[in-house]
Amino acid sequence: MNKLIVSPSPHDDNYVKTSKIMLNVIIALIPALCVGCYFFGWRVISLTSVCVASCMIFEYLCRRIMKRSNTITDLSAVVTGVILAMNLPVTLPYWMAVIGCFVAIVVVKQLFGGLGQNFANPAITARIVLMVSFPSAMTHWIKPLEYQYDAVSSATPLALESSGADSLPSYLDLLLGKVGGCLGETCALALLAGGLYLAARKIISLAAPISFIGSLALLTAVSGGDPIYHILAGGVFLGAFFMATDYATTPITTKGKIVFGLGCGIITFVIRRFGSYPEGVSFSILIMNVLTPYIEQLTRTKVFGAKEAVKNEG
């Protein structure tokens, strides 16, 4: 007879693995990528592939150099690659995208300890670094369905609105993504579908997306803006469903997630209303990422039957 394995209970598990969760996130991103492809052409595929490949290579090399276990198979680097690509304009030169991947994987993720340890969302941080480093390349938008990568820059819906343009894109165009913008952020409908898929699979909680989108809509309405236009335009859905729900950089409890979403909504509104920078969603998420440890301290669960701890500090 074999030797019996003795281990602490439980002796069963539900077989949900990290890689399965990541795979589901990738599945949820596919609709928005497909729509991006339809409106912006083949370069969506090649740019996304470059991002995914370089994220995986950076992850592998980094772990190798740091003499840590290989974590390619958990698919988290793939997710980062896809989300980063979706945050880029389709015309961005490949080498710039590779720099973005380096920032995301090496600087933000691995230098802080790898999966689960990073304090900020890798894709958001990389987008902001690229934005600051290459402002013109990062704001070169093409007209949907024209596939003219060398054409003169078009404008995003938010830029059109703040410049006081006469004809703004219709709600339908915003829902379908037939507007200028990053290659994966324009189609609110596809992003919503992906977000709802993840919620249905119980991979994300809708607490943060709802409080994010809700508070932004409310504040916009109160300030006299068009709330529907503002939540459909400019990457709110991509940020709310896929980046404000990132496990490592947002609070664990539902209370914390609601606070996080509210913060994102408020900061996005403030930047859009009063700021001159077009990066409301990215900055709001990054700022809230940094605040997450404090939110967590204040939003812990209430332990069943626990008595108040006697504070004896110092």
């Binding site: 990290t18 300890g113 999966l115 340890q117 496990y247 490592a248 664990i252 069943f304």
Partner: peptide
């Protein structure tokens, strides 16, 4: 493998403990 802070442990604990923390 590393904790990804998904919060599943917190969601299932009948006593509302936070095993990840």
């Amino acid at each position: 493998s590393a904790c990804i802070r998904c919060g599943r442990c917190v969601r299932v604990c009948p006593l509302g403990l936070m095993p990840a923390d």
